[in-house]
Amino acid sequence: MTTWNDLVGFARSAYKVLEERPDEVRLLYEFDDDRSQTVLLGREVLDGQHEWVQIASPCGEVAYVDLKALLEEVGHNTVAAGVAIMGDYVVLRHSLPLENMDPNEFIQPLALLAATADELEEQFSGGDDY
């Protein structure tokens, strides 16, 4: 994969696409235990020339999450991803350059981020809403 279009084509073939816009794709990442996680892929362009993909997944609504406890949990137990607020949601987020990206450089971080967001959602929100 070397471009956003390549990544979107790969995502269409490997995951269930819920929604697609020119610079954003919303996927459903499904786990073996019948849980699932919504994952957003966003195209970012740095310096007007370098394409990156931003992977984000919600783990709760800001108004209902103990942010201090969540940040401590992420700080102690998360290998890859940062926490951000996007709109009304707390999300885990990770970014990768698309140039020369091997599929495993996308698949593994996506799986790790989705699983971690799902675990945090269950721990801090008590459900499987996202």
Results as ranks from 00 to 15, higher is better:
D102S: 08
A63D: 08
R43T: 00
P103N: 13
S36Y: 06
S57T: 10
V62W: 08
V83T: 10
V39E: 07
A56V: 03
E99R: 15
L96E: 10
G48Q: 04
V62N: 04
L46P: 00
Q49D: 01
E73A: 14
V79Y: 11
S36P: 00
D32F: 07
G42A: 11
V45M: 07
D32V: 05
D33E: 03
D32L: 12
M101Q: 02
D33N: 10
L40N: 01
G42T: 13
V90N: 12
E30R: 06
Q49T: 03
A81Q: 13
V83E: 03
L96W: 11
L96V: 14
H94D: 06
G82H: 13
A63E: 12
K68L: 05
A69K: 14
L96K: 07
L71I: 06
A69P: 00
P58C: 05
L46R: 14
A84E: 09
L92A: 06
D66R: 14
L96D: 04
V91D: 08
H50T: 07
A81C: 13
D66A: 08
S57H: 09
A81R: 13
G75D: 05
E61L: 11
V91Q: 14
P58H: 03
L70T: 04
A81I: 08
H94Q: 11
S95G: 04
A69S: 12
D88R: 15
F31L: 13
L46Q: 11
M86G: 00
N77C: 10
A69C: 04
V65Q: 11
V83F: 07
C59T: 06
D47Y: 04
V83I: 08
F31Y: 12
V91E: 14
N100T: 11
L71S: 03
E44V: 14
L67N: 00
H50E: 09
M101S: 01
I85P: 00
P58Y: 02
Y64A: 09
N104W: 05
N77D: 07
R35W: 03
E72H: 14
G48I: 03
D34N: 07
T78L: 15
Y29Q: 09
T78Y: 09
A56M: 13
N100M: 12
E105K: 01
R35I: 00
L71H: 10
L40W: 15
R93M: 12
G75T: 09
E73W: 12
P97R: 15
V62Q: 10
H50L: 03
H76C: 04
R93A: 10
L40F: 11
M86K: 14
Y89W: 09
P103K: 03
A84F: 05
V53R: 12
H76R: 15
G42Q: 14
